[in-house]
Amino acid sequence: MPDDDRDALSWEGDDADETLVTGEPERTSGARTAAGEAAHATTVLAGPAQRTRAIAGALFLVVAIAWAVGWVLVMLQNPAQQQTILGLAMYQLGELLAVLAPIGWWLAARRLAAQPVPWWIAGVAVTAPWPLVVGVLA
């Protein structure tokens, strides 16, 4: 019995145990090259689609940054006057969220959607600084 306890506390001899599951498949040099070639072929096949998505992503990121700057301009042109400190804090929180919303929308669509371009288009309409776009501010 004491021998079993000592064996349980050491790693000695575990590399020869065929029943031990490590979670990593054993690879040979031939399998590595075949896997590398398959990954390269997949990358080459998806190249034009990935480039188009990257260009669209960059374009919509620029638009999202422009919308965030637009919200800052709206806030500078329309200063808030609140009677309570709580009202002022809530108004400023809303302003902060308005500035962060376009970039947050872009990031969420990029990370969560399988096809982010339609979501980016929707984000352009939803997060636009409408007071600035429509010209409501005087």
Score class of each variant (00 low, 15 high):
residue 1 M to C: 07
residue 2 P to G: 10
residue 4 D to E: 14
residue 4 D to H: 13
residue 5 D to R: 10
residue 5 D to K: 09
residue 7 D to I: 05
residue 8 A to I: 02
residue 8 A to R: 14
residue 12 E to G: 04
residue 15 D to P: 03
residue 17 D to K: 03
residue 18 E to L: 10
residue 19 T to H: 12
residue 24 E to K: 13
residue 24 E to F: 15
residue 27 R to W: 15
residue 32 R to K: 14
residue 33 T to Q: 14
residue 33 T to L: 11
residue 34 A to W: 07
residue 35 A to H: 12
residue 37 E to F: 03
residue 38 A to Q: 15
residue 39 A to T: 12
residue 42 T to E: 10
residue 43 T to G: 05
residue 44 V to F: 02
residue 45 L to F: 01
residue 48 P to R: 01
residue 50 Q to S: 08
residue 51 R to G: 03
residue 52 T to F: 10
residue 54 A to F: 07
residue 54 A to Y: 00
residue 55 I to Y: 11
residue 55 I to M: 12
residue 55 I to F: 12
residue 56 A to Q: 07
residue 59 L to Q: 04
residue 60 F to A: 10
residue 60 F to S: 10
residue 60 F to R: 05
residue 63 V to W: 09
residue 65 I to L: 14
residue 67 W to G: 08
residue 68 A to F: 08
residue 72 V to A: 07
residue 73 L to T: 11
residue 74 V to N: 03
residue 75 M to F: 07
residue 77 Q to E: 09
residue 87 G to K: 00
residue 87 G to T: 03
residue 88 L to T: 06
residue 92 Q to S: 11
residue 92 Q to L: 13
residue 97 L to F: 08
residue 101 A to D: 01
residue 103 I to S: 08
residue 103 I to Y: 04
residue 109 A to F: 04
residue 110 R to Q: 07
residue 116 P to T: 03
residue 116 P to I: 00
residue 119 W to H: 12
residue 121 I to H: 05
residue 121 I to Q: 09
residue 123 G to V: 09
residue 131 P to L: 00
residue 131 P to H: 04
residue 133 V to W: 10
residue 134 V to N: 06
residue 134 V to T: 13
residue 136 V to A: 06
residue 137 L to T: 15
residue 137 L to K: 07
residue 138 A to E: 09
